[in-house]
Write a protein that binds this DNA or RNA. Sequence first.
DNA 1: GCAAGGTGCTTGCAATAGCTAGCACTGCTG
DNA 2: CAGCAGTGCTAGCTATTGCAAGCACCTTGC
Lengths: 180, 180
Amino acid sequence: MPESDITTSSGVHSTGQAEDSAATDATAEVTTDASTGKPIGMVADIGRDIGQYIRQQRENAKISLRQLSKLAGVSNPYLSQIERGSRKPSAEILQQIAKGLRISAEALYVQAGILDVPTGGPVADAIRADAELSERQKQVLLDVYESFRRENSAGQPKQEPSTVEEGTDATAAADRDNAQ
Amino acid sequence: MPESDITTSSGVHSTGQAEDSAATDATAEVTTDASTGKPIGMVADIGRDIGQYIRQQRENAKISLRQLSKLAGVSNPYLSQIERGSRKPSAEILQQIAKGLRISAEALYVQAGILDVPTGGPVADAIRADAELSERQKQVLLDVYESFRRENSAGQPKQEPSTVEEGTDATAAADRDNAQ
DNA sequence: GCAAGGTGCTTGCAATAGCTAGCACTGCTG
DNA sequence: CAGCAGTGCTAGCTATTGCAAGCACCTTGC
């Protein structure tokens, strides 16, 4: 598990340095950015999450940081920063790391928040695979389908009435798409 | 189709400014970066590709650039740069644009080269969905499966002998994974 | 004990992403 | 015709990404 400090990293690279006391006192409250609620002095949790995951996958594969950096074509200091959560890699870098780890890029994308956890059984898969629908139509249909599934799993919907409206909105949207 | 010029954009932002003559003479050969072969003065083709695609989706939806920029939460000058291919957006920005366009983020990711075009019928989907396999094991299995499919679709394999080796390498790799 | 080769990390820098301020233009309204 | 609201874009700026150079430490072999 990478250490959660940025220590002497310059202000140039960080949104703001972590409070010293936070670095030394594990029980100290993490200072957060007022606008996002995410930790200051550290890339957001999601960055640390992907870094932990990459380090875990690398250790499972029993290779060193330098070995992975060569396999991935990424510099080893940068890979260290990624694993320790002090840098947030782009999708392209994640793609390279996935190749180096010989896992799918999608697995890293889910951890990084770039992709949602895959959902849906055969219906959703079939909708996505339908070549005759536009991207917009696919999305509308998926929204309608997911809305119905939520209704059904709730039995009697206990959400706001907007849940009901959502369904009608979706079908209204579908009608508007067809009108175009 | 966005214009392919960066005109007076400063050198700070571009790998290199397009030759003036290239800007005015449509038949002029595009100057390329020696190391990558990609156009200079323009982000790589793939950047223009995603930009074109976004503009096409926006025009299909019959909304203006400013309307989409508000829906997406992206500044309108930056969206213009993306559509014209002079900036390469991150996955997070693509996610926001997809939401604004009400299409799936995956559709934009495929265009941007972040995701491959989805492949595989039921076998690949089932492998990906299997919760009992590690990410590494899934990838090895997919590699083996795709290798077999390539062999079968070629009838008599005409590729390098490495294609055969690839299969044996893959199964050997699978054995090593199981040994760990 | 020393050299060599490995490890993970820090620092400073260049290039790029993404934004704000502002521009020029168009069409509409009173 | 002036004012307004819209359009798409340019220029300059700040924050961030990703790297190269180099550090300190560890293990191994001679």
